[in-house]
Design a protein around this nucleic acid. Sequence first.
DNA 1: TTGAAAGCGGTACCAG
DNA 2: CTGGTACCGCTTTCAA
Lengths: 341, 341
Amino acid sequence: MQDDPNISKRRDPSPRRVTAQDVAKEAGVSRSAVSRAFTPGASLDAEKRNTILAAAFKLGYRPNALAAGLSGGRSHLVAIFVGDMRNAYDSEVVAQLVGRLNALGKWPILIDGGGRKARDALLGEVFRYPLDALIMRAGSMEPLIAEQCAKLNIPVICSGRIIEADQVDNVCCRNLEGSASAARLLIDRGRHRIAHIRGPESYGASDEREAGMRKALAQAGLAPVAVAQGTYTVESGYQAARDLFGRHEIDALHCANDAMAIGALGYLRECGVDVPGAVSVTGFDDIAMAAWPGIRLTTVQNPIGAAVSHIVDLLERRLSDPQKPSEVAWVETQLVLRDTH
Amino acid sequence: MQDDPNISKRRDPSPRRVTAQDVAKEAGVSRSAVSRAFTPGASLDAEKRNTILAAAFKLGYRPNALAAGLSGGRSHLVAIFVGDMRNAYDSEVVAQLVGRLNALGKWPILIDGGGRKARDALLGEVFRYPLDALIMRAGSMEPLIAEQCAKLNIPVICSGRIIEADQVDNVCCRNLEGSASAARLLIDRGRHRIAHIRGPESYGASDEREAGMRKALAQAGLAPVAVAQGTYTVESGYQAARDLFGRHEIDALHCANDAMAIGALGYLRECGVDVPGAVSVTGFDDIAMAAWPGIRLTTVQNPIGAAVSHIVDLLERRLSDPQKPSEVAWVETQLVLRDTH
DNA sequence: TTGAAAGCGGTACCAG
DNA sequence: CTGGTACCGCTTTCAA
């Protein structure tokens, strides 16, 4: 090894990546043969294939995915656009999604849209890659992006809001029904002075979740005592709870997501309010944290696993049939009874 | 528009992506000119450039990043390998890192190593892309990966554990000192019966954090009452606390990360133990959650922003000088006093 | 300043 | 089954 006459070449300041040509030379075959050795189902003498694979292994060769993607095939690159990764629900979705995509041989490029002004520029840049698809995880989302994708012929899987367009498939949660079920729980529990912390207007889910609780209350001849607006963060839930409880007589609080419910819980605990003795609190999503000891939040489960499975499923079906009509996959919610109702 | 004679072409089942050639034809120039129009600093008549850009805009053209990467340049693709995205600290790091990389025009491909058996196969696949760099965020990490990268000439930025190798830069937290400072705080608070929940052996940080607290105790002539082992999850912290408090007289508990501390806090709260009246609890990391109302954990800040800045900085410097010697950037910790000590 | 042409590393089709 | 060859879309010389 030490005497390798190539040692000087090895010192080359920027050693080239090993190519099929190199492997071909090493194995004494043609470039085409090397390509075939890495193409499942290609016709190639078994022994020759082994020789080639051995040479490839020795040289540390891997077919360049960029080149492969260029010449006709798929890039296997998928972009995931996330509204705000700092949000617990979204980050759980991303975590699961990444694992599933990896397993499928798809490589997710993450784009963090979090409050970014230059969002368009950002997307403009990433669209330079011939993406297999774009997965949008966002409640507050620009249909503009979908438009751009249409132009570029990139299929879109959208979760969190429904976009009606060609080549766009949607995954959506039964927000209204879910929220209504939480409100009914509170009513059945004997609560009458029910308040709500909703999300910002820019998110479609905010309206649906508010509408759901209003509907359930109305069916019981009730109306919300008060509705405050947060931003889906723990901190905003804390603030909103302070506002609400400072100005109203309230015996139950339904929040548009778990993070805000946890913030509200924190406020109530600070005030020494007995939950659920004096006040019931419910959330929406059932993030991992909702189940933690010390929180044990009663909430509406918006099952992440189901949403991710739908996304992956729609992606696969879309890729195998790019012309198929758009679909909406619904995610059903379920009440999870813990210690705060 | 409706009369566009190309309408039949538009109906093409799989419309090609617009290429430089198309733009050239539209603008009546050569392919080369189009390329130049998109290359800052290339010599091209100003007016002609405008014509070209207009044509490009009209056609919705974007230079194909794959082709660009193929022909010499960088791919601008960066892989982020995360040990376990379900962990709050790691997911905060990823969230920030993604934003910073996006701003730099680098596109992060996420790989979730979370308990995956086929980790090698996974990496083998992603290494088919000519990555600009690999960022590893992992406490429990295979130096094998670094080896593979060396072969492929891919620089590595490693955070969470130091790997000494060419082309590998490291970002590392002062685990020992940080943990020692927490232990000193507990001692100063008058605690003598101090226990520790450590992390698994496979993580280098686990040993360092335990050693730090042992060292501080030793300096005060003390030794830990007991040490339990968790897995850096909330649930494991809860379990470990139950074990510890069931078998020992303890007046303070230092945990190797915040998640476990939060789990322990949950257990103590369930038992009605007064924190910090009867028992002090400290964590490590200062994840967002540690500051939440209802938790307010006293902890050792392992500043994520600083770590991310170091990663990005090392990345930039490595890319601008691939041959530069390896570096270690240290992240300094700081005690954050809240309500549990 | 410009256009033509040679790669970049594969894939896929061609004739043999 | 095999090697030769023409692309894929872009960047970058090289002359003009």
